Simulated scan of single mutants.
Amino acid sequence: MTSQLTYTQQISQVEQQAGAAIRVSDIVKRYGDLTVLDRVSLDINAGEFITLLGASGSGKSTLLNIISGFNKPDAGLLEVDGEDFTRRPPHKRGLGMVFQHYALFPHMSVWDNVAFGLRRQRRPKAEVQQRVGDVLRMIQMDHLADRKPDQLSGGQQQRVALARGIVFEPRVLLMDEPLGALDKLLREEMQLEIRRIHQELGITFIFVTHDQHEALTMSDRIALLKHGKIVQLGTPKELYDSPNSRYVAEFIGESNLFEGRVDADGFVTDGGARFGRPSGDGSLLMVRPEHVRVAASTEGLTNAAPVRVFNCVYLGSDMVVYGRTESGQVVVARTPISHGVSAPLEGDRAVMTWATEDSRLVPDDAEQRQA
Rank of each mutant, 00 (worst) to 15 (best):
S3A: 13
Y7E: 12
Y7T: 11
S12M: 12
E15S: 13
E15T: 15
A18W: 12
D26E: 15
Y31W: 06
R39T: 04
S41D: 01
A46N: 12
G47C: 08
G47R: 03
F49S: 08
F49C: 05
G54S: 05
G54E: 02
I66A: 14
I67C: 02
F70S: 05
E83I: 00
F85D: 02
R87C: 06
R88P: 00
P89R: 06
P90G: 13
R93A: 13
P106V: 07
N113D: 08
N113M: 12
R122E: 13
E127Y: 05
G133W: 07
M138W: 04
L144C: 04
A145N: 02
D146F: 03
K148Y: 14
Q156I: 05
R159E: 01
L162A: 10
P170L: 13
R171C: 09
M175T: 05
L186T: 05
E188A: 13
E188F: 05
E193S: 11
R196E: 05
Q199D: 12
G202P: 10
D211Q: 04
Q212M: 04
Q212F: 03
Q212V: 03
L216A: 11
D220C: 09
A223P: 00
L225K: 09
Q232I: 01
L239Q: 09
L239Y: 11
S242P: 00
P243D: 07
Y247S: 01
F251S: 00
I252M: 04
L257R: 07
F258H: 01
E259S: 14
V262G: 02
D265V: 10
G266T: 09
G272Y: 08
A273C: 03
G276M: 08
D281E: 15
L285H: 03
L285A: 10
V287S: 03
P289E: 10
P289A: 10
E290W: 01
S297K: 06
V309Q: 02
V313K: 14
D318Q: 14
G323F: 03
R324T: 08
T325A: 11
S327M: 09
S327E: 12
R334D: 10
I337H: 12
I337R: 11
H339P: 00
G340L: 14
A343K: 06
D348H: 07
R349P: 00
A350Q: 01
A350F: 02
A350R: 01
V351D: 02
E357N: 14
D358R: 02
S359Q: 01
V362T: 06
R369N: 06
